[in-house]
Amino acid sequence: MKNHSAVDIFLSFYAWCCAFILTSAVLTILGYLLFHGLSSLNLDLIFAHTPVMDALFLKKQVFGGLLPAITGTLALIFLSMLFALPVGIATGIFLSEFARSGTRKILGLMFDIMASLPSIVVGLFGFAVTIFLHQHFFKQLYPCLLISALCLAFLVIPYIIRSTQIALESLPPQVRLTGPALGATRTQNLWYVLIPMAAKEIIGGIILAIGRSAEDTAVIMLTGAVATAGVPNSIFSGYEALPFFIYYTAAEYANTSELMKAYGAALILLFICGGLYLFAYWIKRKVR
């Protein structure tokens, strides 16, 4: 390597190019979406022509607006977190505090696989199990909000496990030893010292998991999301959701106004996911 400067210049030129390509690609996508989506963002997009208060208090059903899809997505997030949080956090605590190293290895491998399973596989699993139960046990059971939420929970549990485990493991050893030195049991130490100390980090991980369950489309399209269902009123019925609405409209739109609605929906979904991301970032930042 005789010519130092030429290699140096080439390497930094290459790095600059790559960074530029990526940045401009992202900005193009976001700009394109904002350019087309912003004009369709208004109350009519969400509520159609139904009066806002009537729609919010469920006096009137909203037809043609995005309200059912937004509430569907929120219901999905809420339900999937209801299932995923206790199990995920418990598993994370077990891995970091109780598991022996052999157990930790086996479980770690399983959760690595769980985390990288394609979401469509999880969706197919949920769908097949539902059909199986429908045929043999519960005649009334169809793909529905509950099934989707369970599948989404399966999808995000490994993320919650990972962030809980890392948050607890990265606590300084002094903190870990003080409680037991004062006579606290393992559980007391965990409950009064370790979990509160790690809480912010754990919450940051949870919020990112919420973002994943808000955006996932592959799971819900197999397990109960439908094109029109209205605001969800039962966990045993089909429902609308933002990501599915975007996918469905992109494939089936009949006119420009429907397409504009999809742009609006994409923008709203982007705001939800981006907002959650920023929130998680803010919390994590406060930890340091």
């Binding site: 955006e215 994409a266 982007l270 996911c273 981006g274």
Partner: peptide
Amino acid sequence: TAIPTVVYGFI
């Protein structure tokens, strides 16, 4: 990483 995949597909 926070941009939904469906948005990428849509765009």
